[in-house]
Amino acid sequence: MRRGALLLVAIAYIGLANAQQLEDALRLFDEANGLVESGAYAEAIVQYHAVLETGFASGALYHNLASAYFRLDEIGEAVRYYERSRRLLGNDPQLLHNIQIVEAHVQNPFSELPTPFWQAWWYTLFSQYSAWRFLIAGMCLYLIACLLYAHHIWLQTRSNWHRRARVGTLGIGLLLLLIAVLVSGERSSIQGAAILEPTTLVSETGSIDVPEGVKVSFIEETELGAEVSLPNGVRGYVDASVLGFF
């Protein structure tokens, strides 16, 4: 009884602390938006980063942060945070419009390799639905399947429909849980990086100038620098400090 009370108090404390942090995040977010409206972009950027330090983030926050960077002509940072925003907002029309505008400012001399259809589908899937949705749906079906199995064990039912229902719900539930895990992994893994300042990529065939704002695929960190792949598929090494991961 006493332990239960302590647990409740602890949960309540954590909840309240969380609520306080959330309130702080919201206040800072509104202040940062006000600074953007008044044209104080540099100060707004500082404020948006302060929001992130509270432990909370949002697609709108990344979006506004990217907009402030764009206003200061920091195209690389703008690309980086718009891409982060895209992870949370998916194909939000305003976000897509802004990304189009920013990419028009990037002096990208590289053609892009065609995206495989399955990759496009996968990207659409995980940009449309969050991992939580898959998790909740998958966990519900998984629980139902477990209950059906328990029911079958207790009552020793021999119904074919019962068996089909068990197998079906378990299969679909596990599949949804797998997708949830993959989507969650996709969200938390590095998708790529934006070049934050003009740099030179050293490849086997020579050096290539890479302008600010170009999106590259990060492969790994090596002794030669960060190994990346350009949009046209050329691989090479750049200084890791010029990469803004998203």
Binding site: A25, G59, H97
Partner: peptide, 25 residues
Amino acid sequence: SGFPFDDIAVLKRDPQWVAATHTPL
């Protein structure tokens, strides 16, 4: 769509908060 022509639409005001550091499932 109502967005500025040849410029960005600067602000979005509806934050749907998530944890800043995302731990995968």
